[in-house]
Design a protein around this nucleic acid. Structure first.
Length: 115
DNA sequence: GAAATGACTCTAC
DNA sequence: CGTAGAGCCATTT
């Protein structure tokens, strides 16, 4: 019980919260955006706590290949996929179709000093 | 203080 | 090209 200092988590929550509908991103992308590219696992861990927030669309966060690796942690086994399909994203075999097409890059979308 | 876990990612064979 | 193993970071116990 010390998750009050969610400074790192808060970062993940904030970025995840910025993910627009119909878009998805990967743990590595968020982690990298936070400056901890090697903390992809941490991003997922943060998502674990994100389930307590209604503004944290954890279902929009998948692994680098667009695979719903964390669907198992959702309330329902298919909830994650259902949510994605609800936003217009096609999901097959727990994998997002045209993932790169729906991929939401924080660096590019948020413009982290790109050019 | 040290060991264990984890919704990942990369490198090597 | 496919599978296997190690690495990495932060949180938790």
């Amino acid at each position: 019980m010390k998750a009050e200092n969610e400074n790192f988590f808060d970062r993940v929550y904030e970025v995840a919260r910025l993910i627009p509908e119909g878009r998805v991103t990967s743990y590595g992308a968020i982690a990298k955006y936070l400056g901890a590219a090697r903390s992809a696992r941490m991003v997922g861990w943060a998502m674990n706590g994100a389930g307590k927030f209604d503004d944290i669309p954890a279902h929009r966060v998948v692994n680098k290949v667009g695979l719903l690796t964390g669907k198992h942690h959702f309330d329902g086994t298919n909830l994650m996929q259902q949510l994605l399909e609800n936003e217009g994203i096609k999901v097959v075999d727990n994998q997002i179709v045209h993932f790169e097409k729906h991929f939401w890059d924080p660096f590019k979308e948020l413009g982290v000093g790109e050019d």
